[in-house]
């Protein structure tokens, strides 16, 4: 519902959406130009999250549909990175033949996101750009140390997936691709059995680097990086989760339990 400071709540929805302009961009450049002109632009990818914005009265004045931008739909390997176009859907991305070989565990994790209806149109880019705590793209990608490649008017902008929560993006920025380093032979384990209360992604690679991303329903994920070379028995420290629904003691307990189980599944203990 739309909260109006000086008055109250109004139940908005797609049925209360004011008139707006539409651009069906054919190229990244065209999309950027439109983004710059608009006051309240909204990029439209799979559209599975956008209406939630209408429901809180967040109305765009222009919709920039990126479906026609071919390069955003590609999945390929570029040198030492797995590159996933921002508009790649959960379904096509997670079933892509490249995945199992380059990042064991990633496919299984990605396949669990959402449901068939959402997976077939929801995109990985839309998932992280929704910037909602309970959406899982950001959890997996932070664990994988993915770089987000944005197109902006002043050229490409790179950002670690885990930094997106705090980032102030330029108004005209379009997520183009997600680049996941694969040279170090990363592996992933994703524990989702407690979703939405708590989920945890565990990353390790051949250099001994490890990363644990712990996420709750209502607060942003916590990222903990460790090095198995210098820490013989890494164990996650307690986090002050401050989730409004689930207690911190409990979350830390399951974080530790899942950590041990994930270690085992990854063959580390």
């Amino acid at each position: 519902m739309l909260a109006i400071d000086s008055a109250g709540l109004v139940a908005t929805s797609f049925r209360t959406l004011p008139p707006l302009d539409v651009v069906r961009a054919e190229s990244v450049g065209e999309a950027l130009q439109e983004l710059r002109r608009a006051k309240r632009p909204a990029i439209l990818a799979g559209g599975t999250d956008l209406p939630a914005r209408f429901n809180v009265g967040d109305y765009p004045d222009i919709i920039i549909d990126i479906a026609k931008i071919k390069q955003l739909h590609a999945v390929f390997i570029d040198k030492s990175e797995l590159v996933i176009g921002a508009a790649v859907t959960h379904q096509s991305g997670s079933t892509h033949a490249l995945l199992p070989a380059v990042i064991p565990g990633f496919q299984e994790a990605w396949k669990k996101i959402a449901n068939m209806r959402i997976r077939m149109s929801g995109t990985l880019g839309g998932n992280i750009m929704s910037r909602r705590t309970r959406y899982e793209g950001a959890i997996l990608l932070a664990a994988l140390n993915a770089q987000l490649e944005f197109a902006t008017l002043s050229g490409p902008l790179f950002m670690a997936a885990g930094d997106l929560w705090d980032a102030e993006l330029p108004v005209a920025s379009l997520l183009q691709s997600i680049r996941i380093p694969i040279a170090t032979k990363p592996r992933l384990d994703y524990e989702r059995s407690l979703r939405p209360i708590f989920t945890q992604a565990f990353y390790v690679d051949d250099t001994g680097a490890g990363r644990l991303v712990s996420a709750t329903e209502f607060v942003r994920p916590h990222i903990w990086a460790f090095d198995r070379n210098s820490q013989s028995n890494p164990s996650p420290e307690e986090i002050d989760f401050q989730d409004p629904v689930t207690g911190t003691a409990y979350l830390n307990q399951v974080r530790a339990v899942f950590f041990m189980r994930q270690m085992t599944r990854l063959g580390l203990s």
């Binding site: 109006i4 109250g8 109004v10 049925r15 209360t16 004011p18």
Partner: peptide, 11 residues
């Protein structure tokens, strides 16, 4: 509905 919601935002 759109007009009704827009007007309520002015209350």
């Amino acid at each position: 509905e759109e007009q009704a919601a827009a007007a309520l935002a002015l209350v």
